[in-house]
């Protein structure tokens, strides 16, 4: 027995195993965005109360706070639909991983029993099944990428709302300082989500 690790372990995951790793990373990023989206909802609710207290001086801020609350709801919905796609993709990639494992073992059998006709037939049937898995996964990749892009566009809109809230905060008279602090927090959080989504868009999973 040797203590040396096999090449496959040293080289790290590849193929479907690498896809699975990427998709797990995407899922973690989405979970963090969903948590942040929930935070915006609470912040927007507090901002609405603050604007009410500020009265006519913060009317514009109040309107924007309502919009930000609506934005956070839309963002959560988008992220939940992304979650459904992620789960379907994890299913697809896991099936590919098992398929690829079996194919590897059958390929090893071919090396040892190259003339077995039935083995070739089984491998051909499996290749067809593999093509179907691959095609389904390809569709899921596209749908996921498209949903991430939709979420990104939504977050750009959220960014505009947060910046407008910052401007409106300046007209908040005696509440200006509190409103500026809240709108600054909005802006920071939206920026955080934008960075997360940007990372998602660059995931190697979409290049597979």
């Amino acid at each position: 027995m040797t203590d040396q690790l096999p090449d496959a372990i040293v080289a790290g995951p590849k193929g479907p195993a690498l896809d699975l790793l990427h998709i797990v990373q995407i899922n973690e990023e989405i979970k963090s965005v969903v948590a942040v989206a929930f935070k915006i909802n609470i912040m927007a609710l507090n901002a609405i109360f603050l604007a009410k207290r500020a009265g006519t001086a913060a009317l514009g801020f109040g309107v924007l706070s309502n919009e930000l609350r609506s934005f956070s709801s839309q963002l959560r919905e988008t992220m939940l639909s992304l979650n459904a796609l992620i789960h379907a993709s994890v299913d697809g990639v896991s099936a590919m991983l098992q398929d690829s494992r079996y194919n590897d073992i059958l390929e090893r059998a071919v090396v040892l029993a190259s003339k077995n006709k039935h083995l070739q037939e089984v491998i051909e049937q499996r290749e067809n099944a593999t093509d179907q898995f691959r095609s389904k996964l390809s569709g899921l990749r596209r749908a996921l990428r498209s949903s991430v892009d939709d979420a990104y566009r939504l977050v750009e809109l959220g960014g505009v709302l947060a910046k407008s809230a910052k401007i409106e905060a300046a007209y908040g008279a005696g509440f200006s300082s509190s409103l500026s602090q809240v709108s600054g927090e909005f802006d920071g959080i939206v920026e955080e989500i934008r960075t997360s989504l940007d990372t998602l868009r660059k995931s190697s999973f979409f290049r597979g």
């Binding site: 073992i105 059958l106 090893r108 059998a109 090396v111 040892l112 029993a113 077995n116 039935h118 083995l119």
Partner: peptide, 14 residues
Amino acid sequence: FPAVFSAVATEFDP
């Protein structure tokens, strides 16, 4: 599996 399959295949249709 590959080793068993190939050995079986030498004597019998798997």
